[in-house]
Amino acid sequence: MNIDQFTRNAGQPVRRFEYDDRSLLAVDFGPETDASVDLVDDTVIVVLADDQYEFDLPEWADDAHTFMKNGVLTVELEAEA
């Protein structure tokens, strides 16, 4: 599943921010959401209550960092040099 399919299926708004050396994806699950995120190889895994969602990072992403704060999932992707 890619990020577009993930947000469309889960009904979550997503914002993309493009910078010279990186891209940022932010998915808002709402402030009352008890969710967790993990990154395994090139797959982002989000666990939300009894549901688990997985989506693959783009092939061009050289390095990725993920975190969840106040119900917002942030995925920071560093572009290849």
Rank of each mutant, 00 (worst) to 15 (best):
I3N: 05
I3K: 07
I3P: 00
D4A: 11
Q5Y: 03
F6S: 06
F6E: 03
T7I: 13
T7F: 07
N9A: 15
N9H: 09
G11H: 10
P13G: 10
P13N: 10
P13S: 11
P13R: 09
V14I: 15
R15M: 12
F17L: 13
E18I: 14
Y19N: 10
D20F: 04
D20E: 14
R22G: 04
L24S: 12
L24Y: 03
L25M: 09
L25H: 07
A26F: 02
D28G: 01
F29D: 02
F29C: 03
G30F: 01
G30Q: 03
G30Y: 02
P31L: 11
D34G: 09
D34I: 07
S36P: 00
L39W: 06
V40P: 00
V40L: 07
D41A: 14
D41H: 08
D41K: 09
D41L: 08
T43A: 11
T43Q: 14
T43E: 15
V44K: 00
V44E: 02
I45Q: 04
V46I: 14
V46S: 00
V46F: 00
V47T: 15
D50T: 08
D50L: 02
E54G: 09
E54C: 09
D56N: 12
D56R: 13
L57C: 08
P58W: 01
E59T: 10
E59K: 03
A61H: 02
D63L: 10
A64P: 02
F67N: 15
F67V: 12
F67D: 15
M68E: 05
M68L: 15
M68T: 03
M68C: 05
K69H: 13
G71C: 06
G71S: 08
V72N: 06
L73Q: 03
L73T: 06
T74K: 15
T74P: 00
E76R: 11
L77E: 05
L77P: 01
E78G: 08
A79F: 14
E80I: 14
E80Q: 13
A81W: 09
